[in-house]
């Protein structure tokens, strides 16, 4: 019985072809989720627990993004060690960026609320409401793009915010798509509430981080290849 278990655990696998071209796009995302399922589960716990203090939310997600990048790039990971290291290294910058972004998105959101109320009385206010809504979305996408790039150990260039804004403008669909998917994940949790309690406990945090990271890397690659006219890969640093 024990031997049976051990054998099934240590049995030879199919092998990894060396010359297979690396997966790209959604196939890369799928392969990563399948391969790293267990580590994603553990990462989910790490992000969830280290977000409990609320003010640690940005740093927790930035650290998660660094791990997610290693996963997407198929690099060796020591989950706990790498996560803690990233958490400490990124804490202040991530918190600053997160705080500022929360403020901006919050202000814009508040504006949307105010003008939305006014728009109910007079259509003239619909314009500012829509503009502020777009601004809130842009700030959020920009902030997420910047957090991922900040947590990228391979990306050490300055001008982070400016570059993040440029990438968000040049590839305007990547990050919003990820944000919508993450929102859907949480919505599913809320809608099916008692049955779906397992969702955040098992996957929502880490999957969200992975999706946003994937979107940020793809957006960056997309923007880079538009700017240089050469193809760029989401999992390789382009200079």
């Amino acid at each position: 019985m024990i031997a049976r278990l051990r054998d099934s655990w240590t049995r030879e696998g199919p092998g990894v072809p060396k010359d297979m071209p690396p997966k790209t796009g959604l196939a890369l995302l799928g392969a990563t989720i399948r391969r790293e399922a267990w580590d994603l589960f553990m990462l989910n716990l790490l992000v969830a627990i280290s977000s409990l203090a609320i003010i640690t939310i940005p740093a927790a997600h930035a650290a998660g993004a660094r791990v997610a990048q290693a996963m997407l790039r198929d690099q060796p990971i020591y989950l706990l060690r790498d996560y803690m290291q990233a958490f400490r290294a990124l804490f202040w910058r991530a918190s600053g960026l997160g705080g500022a972004a929360a403020l901006l998105v919050g202000l814009a959101g508040y504006g949307v609320y105010i003008y939305g109320q006014l728009a109910l009385h007079s259509v003239i206010y619909t314009g500012p409401a829509i503009i502020l809504l777009a601004a809130a979305l842009f700030f959020a996408a920009c902030a997420l793009q910047a957090v991922v790039m900040m947590s990228d150990a391979q990306d050490t260039r300055g001008g982070l915010l400016r570059r993040a804004a440029a990438i968000t403008l040049a590839s305007p669909l990547h990050m919003p798509a990820a944000m919508a998917t993450v929102a859907a994940l949480w919505l599913a949790h809320l809608m099916f509430y008692p049955v779906s309690v397992f969702l955040p406990a098992v996957a929502n945090f880490s999957l969200g981080v992975l999706l946003v990271t994937f979107a940020a890397l793809s957006a960056k690659a997309h923007a880079t290849s538009r700017a240089t006219g050469r193809p760029a890969s989401a999992t390789q640093e382009t200079r």
């Binding site: 240590t10 030879e12 696998g13 199919p14 092998g15 990894v16 198929d74 690099q75």
Partner: peptide, 19 residues
Amino acid sequence: LDIEHLLNRKPKALSGGQR
């Protein structure tokens, strides 16, 4: 050993020669 592309894999995924 020409196994750089395997560094992040678990032995379960590897063939005999790779292991």
